[in-house]
Design a protein around this nucleic acid. Structure first.
Lengths: 187, 187
DNA sequence: ACCTGAACACCGTTCAAGT
DNA sequence: ACCTGAACACCGTTCAAGT
């Protein structure tokens, strides 16, 4: 008799993310997730292939938080909004976020974010052939900063200082993008 | 009767690093390290406080691999050598390297590397008050790229492509540094 | 279809004991 | 001082069973 499921994958992932945020990746055990859902650990295996799959799911969940910026913004503001989203997500989920840097970005949500950056770079005038390269460098710089900050590598610095750092990082990347755009124009 | 120790901390860390390199962080168990040293798991606890301390030790070990570049080089070559060292270390130790981004860089070896960057930035003419800021941004960009590459985020790209990416990243950072230096000069 | 319960192999770590 | 051996609480995961 097919009864309604008490848990589903997205509820499972939401609770798992909450545990990781509150108590770290080590505390994120199958038993802890199950307890929070009022269910036996084994019940999770119907919705998730195992712990590794659960972690993949969390990375995926983070990716959905990087809401693409509203269309119609100038490219530099567009990238600024996206970068701020990413940084905010890192601060909210310091345990899970570092995993993002460690797995291939081939899922639909990863592509969506990447495509938003592509669009901004094209609008900035970066030659088509250079767009993927520029996206990789810009993204790794932003992710590297976000991971460093969230994981506490800069813990002796004030919030004000880190905000300033981030602004300057974005200015550096914007200049880089403009320089790339210039190579595409005549002269 | 004090007999010579069969193992010491540095031999322990060296074997642990080898396991992580060959089989990943998950395979790096106390039992695996002990077996490799021909000893009981419990013997490790005389040289290491536990698994967390072991991981800290591995990060420390990686830091010692970033040999500071020979003195007397022009600043841009100096930074280039250092960046290449860091990238090479990341490729050798893809499992352990990401941990570097996640802990505060407060150890002597971390300082040594940072001081080498400071020296190069001063030589480049970056105003004293801006040196730490510029170091943070340059380092996170390089580390972000190294982690991404080593952990396979760019796995569909060729070695040639990644070498080109890295060159362009360094050029971008060099331009950033020169721009910072210019703000210190008159005009 | 969805969840439970018992069981297994393994994990990090403690403690007391050996030499 | 250095290592061993037995023991503990916990971990992810399997399998077969319930409804």
């Amino acid at each position: 008799m097919a009864r309604p499921a008490r848990i589903d994958r997205s509820r499972l992932l939401a609770e798992a993310l909450a545990i990781a945020d509150e108590r770290g990746l080590e505390a994120l055990t199958m038993a802890a997730v199950a307890e929070r859902l009022g269910v036996t650990p084994m019940a999770l295996y119907r919705h998730v292939a195992g712990r590794a799959d659960l972690l993949d799911g969390l990375v995926e969940l983070l990716l959905t938080e990087f809401a693409p910026p509203p269309a119609g913004l100038p490219w530099s503001e567009c990238l600024g909004v996206l970068a701020a989203n990413i940084r905010a997500s890192a601060r909210r989920h310091p345990s899970v976020f570092p995993l993002l840097l460690q797995r291939p970005a081939t899922t639909p949500d990863a592509r969506r974010t990447r495509d938003a950056v592509y669009a901004a770079l094209r609008e900035a005038g970066v030659p088509e052939g250079r767009v993927p390269l520029v996206e990789r460098l810009v993204s790794t710089a932003v992710l590297g900063f976000a991971v460093s900050e969230a994981a506490g590598r800069f813990r002796e610095h004030s919030r004000r200082q880190l905000d300033a750092d981030f602004d300057i990082l974005q200015a550096m990347l914007a200049r880089f993008i403009r320089a790339e755009a210039a190579t595409g124009s005549p002269g």
